[in-house]
Simulated assay, not measured.
Amino acid sequence: MRALRLDRGYDQATLGDLADVSVTSIKNLENGRGSSLRTVIRILRALEATAWLDTLAPTPTVSPIDLLRSAEATPRRRVSRPRSDD
């Protein structure tokens, strides 16, 4: 976030005004102390960097239906311990 902000030429106060968030929220986010998702989205919109959000939910490469079908085709196997002769 800091690099994006600096690339756009904004100081933290200006970005805070554009994103309608506090400077403290921006400082916390840039220093890795976390923030709410709402704050992150507001800042990314202000920085015109919403494409970054696509990395949060990548396109699925495995179909859940295919996984279910392959599980049905494989017989269940069980493991058992040998019984002791007490």
Score class of each variant (00 low, 15 high):
Trp52Gln: 15
Asp85Gly: 13
Ser63Tyr: 00
Asp86Gly: 15
Glu30Trp: 01
Gly16Arg: 11
Arg83Asp: 10
Val79Tyr: 06
Leu18Tyr: 11
Ser70Asp: 14
Ser80Pro: 03
Arg38Phe: 02
Glu72His: 09
Gly32Met: 07
Leu67Ile: 09
Val79Leu: 11
Gly34Phe: 12
Val62Asp: 10
Arg83Cys: 10
Leu6Asn: 06
Arg45Ile: 09
Thr39Gln: 05
Ala49Asn: 04
Asp17Gly: 14
Asn28Phe: 12
Leu53Lys: 01
Pro82Cys: 07
Arg77Cys: 07
Pro75Ser: 06
Ser35Cys: 13
Arg83Tyr: 03
Thr14Asp: 12
Asp7Tyr: 10
Leu4Ser: 08
Ser36Gly: 02
Ser70Asn: 09
Arg33Met: 13
Ile41Cys: 04
Gln12Pro: 01
Leu4Asn: 00
Arg5Gly: 07
Leu53Asn: 02
Ala71Gln: 11
Glu30Thr: 04
Leu47Arg: 07
Ala51Asp: 15
Ala46Leu: 09
Pro75Cys: 00
Thr55Phe: 14
Val23Lys: 15
Ala49Phe: 02
Leu6Ser: 00
Leu18Ser: 09
Ala13Pro: 00
Gly9Val: 07
Thr39Asn: 13
Ala57Ser: 09
Tyr10Gly: 01
Tyr10Asn: 02
Leu53Gly: 05
Lys27Trp: 01
Asp7Ser: 15
Asn31His: 03
Pro64His: 00
Thr24His: 00
Pro60Gly: 06
Ser35Glu: 03
Ala71Phe: 05
Gly34Thr: 05
Asp54Tyr: 07
Arg2Met: 01
Thr55Asn: 15
Arg76Tyr: 12
Arg81Leu: 06
Arg45Leu: 07
Ile65Met: 10
Leu4Gln: 00
Ser84Val: 08
Leu4Phe: 02
Val40Leu: 15
Ile41Pro: 06
Asp85Ser: 15
Asn31Ser: 13
Arg77Met: 12
Ala51Met: 07
Thr24Ile: 07
Pro75Gly: 00
Pro60Met: 03
Ser25Tyr: 04
Asn28Pro: 09
Leu68Cys: 15
Ser35Asp: 09
Asp7Asn: 14
Leu18Arg: 08
Gly34Asp: 07
Arg5Asp: 06
Val40Trp: 03
